[in-house]
Amino acid sequence: MNNILTATGLNKAFDNLQVVKDVSLTIQKGEFVCLVGKSGSGKTTLLSLLSGLEQPTSGEVSINGTSITNSLENDLALFRRKSIGFVFQSFNLIPTLSAWENVALPLFPVKMERGKREERAMELLGQMEIDHRAEHRPSALSGGEKQRVAIARALVNHPEIIFADEPTGNLDSETGGAIMNILKHLHKRKGLSILMVSHDQELAASCDRIIHMKDGEVVS
């Protein structure tokens, strides 16, 4: 089985509003998939369902053969820590922590020596070419640097899949392009599976596969 992610008959409704309608999809290991669609088409909600941040009204999601539907919240948190990396549009870094501490954030609840945590974080910051900014807090970093820190954080636990929600949405085109290159590099060199949400068709074109969404449904 080469599927890293399998979703079957996913539905999500908020009160009477059906946001995701009967979505079934698969993502193969090492595949870079882009989920595109207009604003309000249900992309982010689908990403939340696929990553276990949100429970579907009906349907099932499994990652690497493990069903995450109907799991307890704490079990899901543990699963996300071990198997999933997130990259958000607004970076979502903790403002009081330094760059390396933000990278190491998923490791804080793990029993691990501080030195090893820092070593791992510094290794990733080195890969993102911002290790010289390790001690700076997010307020002292540029948008591109913040997103590199966020990508490093997503990688710190050796995830099986990365979910990226509009990772270039808050960046200028040049910086966005650089971030996209990092994601492509991770995909090609490390064989990481990535599901990226974007409304930018041009960015999507560089992915292995594009999934189009409209009004909560996968249309192609």
Binding site: R81, F88, P109
Partner: peptide, 8 residues
């Protein structure tokens, strides 16, 4: 964010 990155 903490929940998303795996904090219980």
């Amino acid at each position: 964010v903490l929940k998303a990155v795996g904090w219980s």
